[in-house]
């Protein structure tokens, strides 16, 4: 994971559910780029055309609520989203994102659409460069940090499997 991410904000509200992130009718492929073509189609039809690699989502509470579809973080990664910053996350979305390597920050920040945002993971600091304001966010717990450092759940599980085989 990159320790510093900079990108332009897309602003969303509270309770953005997985049906809004990627509508169920498109769950006929697990391909991130194909899914990205329909991301936020029902609520922000311009998103898939205008999103640029490295952009950041800024949202309110309970981001990613609803279904367990891993297609939601996959669609965001396919669209080039580098990081999500939200006040809180629904638990399955949180797990899925960490497991497949989409960085999430839990913070309540003040940002408008198109503001330039910088996230410094090492120091737990989000900066809104356009507004010249900072917020601190807590580090991941030790286990999650280990997962992230390993590159996600698959490399972690591989390592555990070979350790368990060695006994």
């Amino acid at each position: 994971m990159k320790m510093i991410i900079e990108g332009i904000a897309w602003k969303f509200g509270d309770n953005i559910d997985t049906d809004q992130i990627i509508p169920a009718e498109y769950l006929v492929t697990p391909d991130p780029e194909e899914l990205a073509r329909h991301a936020f189609e029902k609520i922000r039809p311009e998103f898939s055309k205008s999103v640029k690699s490295g952009d950041i989502l800024v949202a309110g509470t309970n981001f990613g609520c609803g279904s367990s579809r891993e297609h939601a973080p996959r669609a965001l990664m396919g669209a080039g989203i580098s990081c999500v910053i939200a006040r809180s996350y629904a638990r399955i979305f949180f797990r899925n994102s960490i497991n497949i390597g989409l960085p999430l920050v839990e913070a309540d920040i003040d940002a408008d659409e198109n503001d330039a945002i910088k996230v410094d993971f090492e120091n737990g600091l989000v900066t809104n460069l356009s507004k010249n304001k900072n917020w601190r966010f807590p580090p991941y717990n030790e286990f999650l940090q280990k997962l992230i450092d390993n590159g996600g759940l698959i490399p972690y599980a591989k390592e555990r499997l070979s350790a368990e085989r060695r006994g």
Partner: peptide, 29 residues
């Protein structure tokens, strides 16, 4: 790997929805 897996608590189980990648690791581990 379906969010409504929580249904089984009606029978006194602990059950919860997870994602696909983590389901794969449970297949193996």
């Amino acid at each position: 790997a379906d969010s409504h897996t929580c249904t089984y608590g009606a029978l006194g189980a602990f059950s919860t929805g997870i994602g696909s990648t983590e389901a794969a690791t449970v297949f193996a581990r």
